[in-house]
Design a protein around this nucleic acid. Sequence first.
DNA 1: GCATGATCATGC
DNA 2: GCATGATCATGC
Length: 450
Amino acid sequence: MNESKRKYHTKEEILRKAQDIIGIPIKDIDKTQRISTGKGAIGSVIEESWFEYSINSNSKPDFEEAGVELKVTPYIVSKKGIRAKERLVCNIINYMEEYKNTFKTSSFWKKCNTMLLMSYEHKNNIPKGDFTISKATLFSFPEKDLRIIEQDWKTIIDKIKSGKAHEISEGDTLYLGACTKGANSKSLRQQPFSSILAKQRAYSLKQSYMTYVLNAYIFGSEEDENIITSPEDLKEKTFEEYIIDKITPYIGCSEKELFEKFNVTKKSKNMFEMIVARILGVKGHLSSTEEFKKANIIPKTIRVQKNGKIKENMSFPKFDFIELSREEWETSTLKKYLEPTKFMLIIFQEKSNGEYYLDRLKFWNMPLSDLEEVHKVWQKTVDIINEGVVLTKTGRGVANNLPKKTENRVAHVRPHGKNGDDKNMLPDGRKMTKQCFWLNNTYLEEIISN
DNA sequence: GCATGATCATGC
DNA sequence: GCATGATCATGC
């Protein structure tokens, strides 16, 4: 309860005031010298100096009477377009209480069902005070998103109810995540059904979701193919269940049959992703559908051989040695990729005739304990690059001392270039074949066996 | 046999 | 030109 309540009663009044700030450098409105403080400084300036209310962290929306939560949020413009700079962090989850709620009585819904999104472009090497708000938009969730967000909320609550709040990961969910929040990763809280302390987490809208919101609702009117075309589709089942149900009739079909049936040529890139897209009635790429973009679901194919082994390891995007060498794990490209990502594993099984048959589809995200293994591999990689990679000419190429598959249960480092000449610069000026992190095929066997 | 280094091929 | 899904090839 504060001054703002007196001044801004309705959504319209709030939006009008918010739009008046567009184009004004933040330093010009800063009455309290907040801008020099750290994280979230721009948001603080707008709350204090523009809307003139004191910052609070209560469970009600910032503009309680109008039911509007203020969120100031950065985006980045690059060659590839506009993308959210980060996830949008909402309120902290009180594990001890939240499970007693329904979605509509949850702390997330009460606080964030309508948000005033004030967006600004973040540019590197420019002082924060020079940034300006470029858009102010009242945002309420589209109905189709709400179905998935409500399921996400239930997923989080189910983990609390089963005494696994300490295992919650952003990758568990699609649009609404539970990200860690606190002074550091050691900010721990009690949970109701286990004595294990869990990391403090807050509801957050994933970066991929916010990127979509920016492109589709704030700056444009992007229209993409939808996988879910009727709201009824998600009445009884989750998004993942819906997809798996659609695929079920094709389980047991050979690759050849699927290629023919859906007119996909073997050799086309993403051929298996294309097949799943066709089964779901999607004309284009799965990765171009609204749902896959919002949730950043990544399809990966796994081919299991007759003997139950998986021949190939799974690659991730290649890394830049110099950028990697300067990263911290918590904010690293790899962690930011792996932690919130849901993978759609398209699993084929080889039969005795040597042909591969569609076996099943599995949605998977990396458990936190395995992410810690990746952390070790990552740290070792960074250390070796910083110390200077040892390169040795051998009979079949140039050997290196980056983490090998034999050194860790989960992941390793291997080349991923066009050929031997496809190299990148090391911090010491030498050049090395482009490398990327890979998941061990033996780890993949573990994943799909349970 | 398989770990490790290397490369192909498509699509943007 | 490059990223990336997919896969090869050979020495240990």
